[in-house]
Amino acid sequence: MTSSLVVDRVTVEYTAGAPVLRDVSVAAAAGRMLAVTGPSGAGKSTLLRAMAGVLRPVTGAVAVDGRPLRDRDDAVSRRVVLIPQDNGLATILTASENVQVVLVANGFSPEDARRATAESLEQVGLSAQAGQLVEELSGGQQQRTAIARGLALSGAVLLADEITSELDAANRTKVLELLRAEADRGACVVLATHDLEAAAACDAELHLLDGAAELVRAYASAPVTASGS
């Protein structure tokens, strides 16, 4: 199953009258990777949270396959997966437990959850750390655990927020290859990043600055539009 994601003239505010994103539009295609770039504070995480249904736009809409997202629960039911910048892991659980509990909550049987957890941790090179508490893992290992959890969910839309920031060069390359594999299976992948090399590995790039958006690189053979004021 493949999905497209469209952000249509979205404005997001945390404080009334002080927009973090202003009139942003972009279309992200199934089977492709879209980079969202820009300096710290430009609104990258805010845009991904809006794409994930976590934040409700003041104006505009986010739609998956032509149907607007109502909220985060609606997004989850439509297989929109968010890998957050802060990883969102429970430190008192093991790496394996952090993945399994989310899979079971999303309808996996315990057996399928165990199998998918083992596979995803192996993909990110953490098989040996599966039984370790998250609080015992390094920052990079915690980040890879969060990535493994996101990959195991096999989302139709995969939103990854600065997920290579704690990784060394070898693991960054591995993670970008895994994101490409997700796109190759038909997922719509959006990567928020300040890493120019990670952005260059994507098929298109949307640059944010002061809440406004500019499409600096379009998909080679898929329609994408972006605008900002």
Score class of each variant (00 low, 15 high):
T145G: 06
L21E: 08
G88T: 02
V24A: 08
A183V: 03
T91N: 09
D161A: 08
A118V: 12
Q123I: 05
H194M: 13
S109A: 13
L69C: 03
G228V: 05
N171Y: 11
A116V: 01
L121P: 11
A105G: 15
L93G: 11
L55H: 14
R9M: 07
E197V: 09
L21G: 14
N98Y: 08
E177M: 10
T173F: 10
L48G: 01
S165L: 11
D8P: 00
V64E: 00
R78G: 07
T164E: 04
V36T: 00
C202P: 07
D74Y: 04
A50L: 11
V124L: 09
G211Y: 02
G150A: 03
E97I: 09
L167D: 06
A52V: 03
V26F: 05
T59Y: 10
E122S: 15
A61C: 14
V175I: 02
A63T: 04
T225K: 15
R32Q: 11
A181T: 12
G155K: 00
S221K: 10
R114K: 12
G131E: 13
C188G: 05
S45Y: 00
L178E: 05
R49E: 12
A16N: 09
S229C: 13
D23N: 15
A204T: 04
E13F: 14
V102Y: 01
A75I: 03
A218Y: 11
S96M: 09
L208I: 06
L191N: 00
V104R: 15
D168Q: 06
V190K: 06
A226D: 04
A42W: 08
S96F: 07
T145F: 14
L5W: 02
I147D: 05
R32T: 13
G17H: 02
S25K: 05
Q129A: 15
R79W: 10
V12S: 01
G31H: 10
T15N: 14
Q132C: 10
E13L: 04
A95T: 04
Q123L: 13
L82H: 15
S4K: 09
S165A: 15
E214D: 13
S77C: 08
S227D: 13
V54E: 02
S40P: 08
A52K: 01
R22G: 05
S40W: 07
L191R: 06
A218L: 04
K44G: 03
S40H: 13
L48S: 03
R185K: 10
P110V: 01
D8N: 10
A50W: 09
E122N: 14
V124R: 11
V36M: 02
A50N: 09
A201K: 13
A152H: 12
R172I: 00
S138V: 13
M33Q: 01
G228I: 06
V10G: 12
R72K: 11
V10I: 13
L208V: 07
L103E: 07
V190E: 03
V76I: 12
L151P: 11
R79Q: 13
G31R: 09
L82D: 06
S127A: 14
L5S: 00
P110T: 00
G31W: 10
S138T: 08
L133T: 03
S227H: 14
S165I: 05
V62L: 09
T117N: 08
R114M: 11
D195S: 10
Y14R: 05
E197T: 13
L179V: 01
L55Y: 15
G107Y: 00
